[in-house]
């Protein structure tokens, strides 16, 4: 599986995700600068976390209009899988590749913690290594992770099974967001990650790339990358 990791001014997790991909594929991904309108053919495009363009105007708004994203949109339309993590999730929603948007955390604080996620489906390129209903533990680090979409969009996401991950308790109970028990940011229906209609684009706030080695507190995120390798190699 050959992957490309996009790099914007202000990205800061591109190295982490590149390392996670190298760990499972043995192959270093191509690092693609935001100003590049074209790049080599790849099996997977990753939009990493960070603070692209200093989060000016809105998180991800500027990056979504960069030359490289025009190319990403073209390739996504052709079915090339796209994974947006954290700021990458914000960028792909701003680019219109995923519905909804990420708003300021409802408690207004930056949250940096391990969270538990319920895997909603195993039927996707990204989640085939997990079981539906499985609980995984991965970190989050963001101030704008509060997923919001209008009522019609929310219903469509639920009906079409486009919700990939939800925040939950360690036992797998999806509680909140009112109580905020397991929901770190107030997101609608505890959404942590969503797919596009064809499930070839995934955006999520948590960082699976930071849960791939036991030395760093867990390996629950590794399955996502292993699943992609299995599906795309």
């Amino acid at each position: 599986m050959k992957a490309a990791v996009l790099v914007f001014p202000g990205s800061n997790r591109e190295g982490d995700v590149a390392q996670a991909i190298e760990l499972v594929t043995g192959q270093r991904p191509a690092m693609v600068w935001h100003g590049d309108g074209d790049f080599e053919k790849v099996d997977l495009i990753v939009v990493p976390g960070g603070f692209s363009y200093g989060d000016y105007l809105r998180c991800g708004a500027m990056a979504a209009l960069s030359p490289v994203m025009a190319e990403v949109k073209k390739r996504a339309a052709q079915g090339v899988p796209v994974l947006g993590i954290c700021n990458g999730f914000q960028i792909v929603t701003e680019a219109g590749l995923l519905p909804g948007t990420l708003m300021r955390n409802s408690h207004l604080k930056f949250v940096c913690a391990d969270v538990h996620l319920k895997v909603e489906t195993s039927q996707s390129l990204f989640t085939n290594r997990y079981q539906a209903g499985q609980v995984i533990r991965v970190p989050v680090a963001h101030a704008e992770g509060n997923y919001f979409a209008d009522a019609d969009t929310m219903k469509r996401l639920e009906d079409r099974g486009q919700i990939a991950f939800r925040y939950c308790s360690p036992e797998g109970v999806v509680d909140g967001p009112q109580g905020m028990a397991s929901n770190p940011n107030g997101s609608s229906s505890n959404i942590a990650g969503v797919f596009n209609e064809t499930k070839t684009v995934l955006g999520l706030m948590p960082h699976p790339e930071n849960a791939v080695e036991p030395m760093f507190g867990g390996t629950d995120g590794k399955g996502l990358f292993e699943g992609l390798v299995e599906a795309l190699s």
């Binding site: 105007l57 809105r58 209009l65 519905p99 209008d150």
Partner: peptide, 9 residues
């Protein structure tokens, strides 16, 4: 529509 506002919200 293109940049200044996010019409979702």
């Amino acid at each position: 529509k293109k940049l200044l506002a996010n019409t979702v919200i």
